[in-house]
C-alpha cells in the first residue's frame, strides 16, 4: 500500500481496490457508509493493515471483502465465520473481521454464528442488516419484520424474525451493539472498541435497502430510510436485549447492549489443557497486539 496521502484523495482510497470502483451497491444503499466508518476506525486506532484480515460471505455486504485492499476472503455462502475461525486459529496475531449480511450470517450460517459465539472465538463480526436477501431479488430474510412484503411473501411475512442482539447475547458474545447507518460517529467508536475487545464481538448495523426492501414495502428511497432512522431510533445503552426487536414502522432501539469479559476460545483451551497436563502442555502462541 502506498503511504502517500494526498488531501484531495478520499480517506478510504488507500484501503480499497479503487480499480474496482464504482462498486455494485445501489444509490442510497448503506453498505458504503459501513465501509467509511470501518476505514475511519482503522485510521483512528492505527491498525497495522498487514495484521488485518477481512472475511465476508455472499450477498451485497459480502462484496466488502473484495473491495478491501487487505488480506481478504470472499467465502462461500454462510461460511465466513468458519473461515475466519480457521484463520484466527492459524494466525492468532491477526485482527480478523467478518463483514456479512444478516441472511448470510444468521440464516444460512446461523449455526456457525451461534457456535462461534458460544466458544468465544476471537472474531469481530459486523452484520449489516437490511431485512432482506437483496442480491437474489428480495426473498424473506431471517430478520424481515412481521407483515413486511417480500418476493416470497407477497401478502406479508408471518414468521417471527430474529432479534439479533438477543441471539448474540444468549449465544455468548462478549460485545453486542446495534447502530443504524445514521449513527456514523457511534459506529466508528464501536468499531474502535471492538478492535480492542478480545472475544466474539457482534455489531449489528441497520442499513437502508432502497431498491428491494424499501421499494416493496413503500418506505421510500435511501434518504427516506435515513430520515426514518434519525427520527425513530432511540439510544438505550445497556438495554435488555430481549426488548430490542424491530417492528415494521416501529422504533429502533440502538446502543451498546453488552460489554463483558470471558476467556476466548484459545485462552480457554490453554487454561484447560495446562491445568490438566501441567508442564507437558506447550501453550498456544497467541501473539495478539491490541
Amino acid at each position: 500500500m502506498s503511504k502517500e496521502t494526498n488531501k484531495e484523495m478520499n480517506p478510504v482510497e488507500p484501503y480499497l481496490r479503487m480499480d474496482r470502483m464504482p462498486h455494485i451497491w445501489c444509490s442510497g444503499c448503506g453498505i458504503g457508509i459501513v465501509v467509511n466508518c470501518f476505514v475511519r476506525a482503522l485510521q483512528k486506532s492505527k491498525v497495522d493493515i498487514n495484521k488485518l484480515a477481512v472475511v465476508s460471505g455472499i450477498g451485497c455486504t459480502g462484496r466488502i471483502a473484495g473491495y478491501f485492499k487487505v488480506d481478504s476472503f470472499h467465502t462461500t455462502h454462510g461460511r465466513p465465520i468458519p473461515f475466519a475461525t480457521g484463520l484466527k486459529t492459524a494466525r492468532p496475531d491477526m485482527n480478523v473481521w467478518v463483514f456479512s449480511g444478516e441472511g448470510d450470517l444468521v440464516s444460512i450460517g446461523g449455526n456457525h454464528f451461534i457456535h462461534a459465539a458460544r466458544r468465544n472465538a476471537d472474531l469481530k463480526v459486523i452484520c449489516v442488516n437490511n431485512f432482506t436477501y437483496a442480491m437474489t431479488g428480495g426473498q424473506v430474510g431471517p430478520t424481515a419484520p412481521l407483515h413486511s412484503i417480500a418476493t416470497t411473501a407477497p401478502y406479508g411475512t408471518y414468521d417471527q424474525p430474529f432479534n439479533l442482539p438477543f441471539l448474540a447475547e444468549s449465544s455468548g458474545a462478549v460485545y453486542v451493539a446495534r447502530w443504524t447507518t445514521f449513527h456514523v460517529r457511534q459506529l466508528v467508536k464501536s468499531m474502535q472498541e471492538i478492535k480492542n475487545k478480545p472475544g466474539f464481538s457482534f455489531l449489528e448495523v441497520i442499513a437502508p435497502c432502497p431498491t428491494i426492501y424499501q421499494r416493496r414495502n413503500r418506505l421510500g428511497d435511501g434518504l427516506a430510510g435515513m430520515r426514518y432512522y434519525k427520527e425513530r431510533s432511540k439510544v438505550v445503552n445497556g438495554a435488555d436485549t430481549r426488548n430490542v426487536d424491530i417492528k415494521l414502522g416501529g422504533d429502533i432501539i440502538v446502543g451498546k447492549f453488552i460489554d463483558r469479559d470471558r476467556p476466548t476460545q484459545l485462552e480457554a483451551m490453554d487454561q484447560e489443557l495446562s491445568h490438566k497436563l501441567g508442564d507437558k502442555y506447550v501453550p498456544y502462541p497467541t501473539g495478539v497486539e491490541r
Binding site: 480499497l16 458504503g32 456514523v184 435511501g222
Partner: peptide, 15 residues
Amino acid sequence: DLCGLYCPDFAIHGI
C-alpha cells in the same frame, strides 16, 4: 467530514 462518513460512494470528503 460528516459528508465523507455518510457518502456510500466515496465521492466526497471534508478536511
